[in-house]
Design a protein around this nucleic acid. Sequence first.
DNA 1: ATGGTGTGGTAG
DNA 2: ATCGCTACCACACCAT
Length: 853
Amino acid sequence: MDDDKLLAILESSQEGEERGLGPEERDPAETLGRLSDDALIEYMTNLSQGARKDFTREEYFRDKEIKQRERDEATRAGLGRANAPIFAGCTIYINGYTKPGRLQLHEMIVSYGGKFQHYLLAKKKVTHIVATNLPLKKRLEFRNYRVVRPEWITESIEQQKLLPWQDYALSWDQEQRSLQLKVASAPVSSAVDCKDPNFLKTFFENSRLHHLSNWKADLRSRFLSEGFNKPSPGDALSIFHIDFDCFFATVAALGCESCDINRDPIVVCHGSKSSDIASCNYVARKYGIRNGMWVSRAKSLLPPGVELVSLPYNFKEIEEKSKIFYTVLKEYKIKFDLILPISIDEAVCVVIDHHTPHPIDRDEICRELRSEIWKRTGGCTVSIGCSNTLVLARLNLKIAKPNGYHILTQQQLVENEADWHSYLGKFQIDDLPGIGYSIVSKLRSLRQHLNNLLQLKQYFHNSLPLLQKCVGKKTGSKILMYLHGKDDEESSRMIFEPESFFARKSLSIEINWGIRFDTVQEIDNFIDTCADYLVQKLQEMNKRTSQITLKVLRRCADAPIEPPKYLGCGECDALSHNCRLGIPTSELGVIATELKSTFRLLGCPPKDLRGVSIQFNKLIEVSYDQNENQQRLKLPFQKTLNFDVFDNLPSDVKNDFSKELKRRNIVLTSSPRPKTSYAATYEEKFMEELPTQIRNEVKNDLRINRKITRTKLSELREQNRKKKESIRNVRAHLLGHESLFEPIKFQKESRFKDICRIVMEWFDATLIEGPHEKDLLLFENYLDKLSDSNRVPLILRFSKLISVRLNLKSNQYGQEAGFQEWEQFLLKNVIPKLNKNKHTFQTVRKLDIDFDI
DNA sequence: ATGGTGTGGTAG
DNA sequence: ATCGCTACCACACCAT
């Protein structure tokens, strides 16, 4: 079949289906009305140009696909955040006649967060195919896909969650069906493939550590939203540290009729070999099994004849039990002044002693709480450590475990030195909160046989400096405080300043399992997914971030490609890089773009990537005021506008803007500007034209350069040149001949670095006379090629190079015709190209009307 | 001194 | 098979 025929068939089949739909779906005005401004303009441009004959079939479809995606984005944006992203991560193709029809399904998919594929061009991307019946040929063609009935879409929406597609698998005769299931299950079972769009979701659903962190964050934010009595330093306190005994294991055992938690060694884990043990009961601990140990190791510790009982996680039930736990604490007859959430299964409750005639009975509290929780949770035991300081409550908890309680106050212990010593003798050094293997090994390096707290105390006597030299300033003084049963400043904060202690200061995710990529593009996709996840959370919290960090784990040079742990990260180097955004944002486009370019900066070969972590560091609350401010650029000189900017507007919109300026009382400054204020005005004008996310980078460059012009010019300029040279070398490495892109040439050069050099030389040579028109055309042509092949970041590099260069020369050449020509070229010809690709630079749209400086 | 960056440690 | 997260602090080092 030739291309034209195929086209004709596809077009007519689509029309045929549209004809079957309600009249409102066919109304062209209706369609136009739903478009964003940009989509509309593109649409019209398309119309006026007509179908270009020289397009290949692929280009034609890809073009259509991209335009449709834009419209989908616009549709979704128009809906606001009303719908749950049920189909997030799904790319869905609809085959043939369906009911409801293609357009309705399309809208459903898009408005509930899915992607819609119009043509089966990029087959790999499609996650599901919707169809009601398939001809034999198609069945064969789709046999490796998840083919579902349209009800999968409609019923998923009804129930507001993604239903398992298997329940809606398109059934044909039994034989075919079993074949289909067999083959189709292959790509599906590989949900544990980081290239699968659902990888993140599946991973998180099954990750105990993810749940632990998430639960903790939820509990903390709930704590802050509820009331509490804050004690003052000096108040007499009763602190109860309450903790479930091997929580996961207990919950799992309760759901397993055939096993006995007091008889069998029970562990909770996923697998049978290199799987981590999340929790083990006390029978298992008797054999030396510990939390975090691998199952294979645990098995090897058991004597012959004793079988390890591996139980699966039951996250749902764990949440339920925890809910009961916190409810019991909240409803207890003696109202706690503070119920501080430590984790899903652990809380610190505080009673402020008000010297009332009836002092509280700590024993009674412990007994009652333990029995109440045991009853209400259907058989979970908690242990309680009680004291008047946090550290002693924790140490007492350690004594109390399992299934008991222990009460002992600092006063009781300090009175008798011998008691205190025997108490300390019970504990290992890492029983102290905040002391782990690393600090223990530091302490050991000073004295080989340092085992328990008593030895620790005796070894260091009162020698704070020695301790501090060994483990650090703060840690040293902390340990010494603990050895006297006192809390250090940091842990006290939890009690005395709970609102700041529990407030969230950052937001992050990290995935260090299952990461195996081949290409940067795959990693880009993954970063997009991660960024999307984080941004969603950020927006739910009504916050913005102004600083983000990307951390990657990279396989150590000598580490094996596949580590002992299945899909584990193995031995890795951690690399991290943070970048400031200048303006706090919660926009996915800005953040994802920044992250992707940061990844390139870290220079990790795609195949060696073993872990990804993204952090939002500086969080600010979105208030109404800030909301207003974010739309504008905060500059000291407001309310004036350079005449040239206005003058360069298309004539037909000048009138509208003129009215708007008058209404807003913005004055046009005369042109040309006085030389002294030139640089500042130039910056202002330039900044105003930039996409939000690169403003700050440029601002930074400008700041650096302003400093240069102020101080010893030649010397610093030389330094700057060297710095830039090295940066350019890095970029050449990333973007040059080793680039994953096909080379695009300019002046016979394809290495980005070389092209930059040529452009810079050309720039310098034409600052006075101005560049030749033909040269500019050639250069623009090159930029267009970059733009067409989705290499917008390279254009960004050029804009920055030119803008930095312009600013550097502004004092000396600011009034020259060449300088001004370059300036115009940058503003009118280069920067607009940055705006062309709306997928990478989603924020640009706003800027087009961001006139209110 | 102060402040920022990248790295490392700890907990649950 | 297997689901090695994530918030936060402390520190070393650097520039200013």
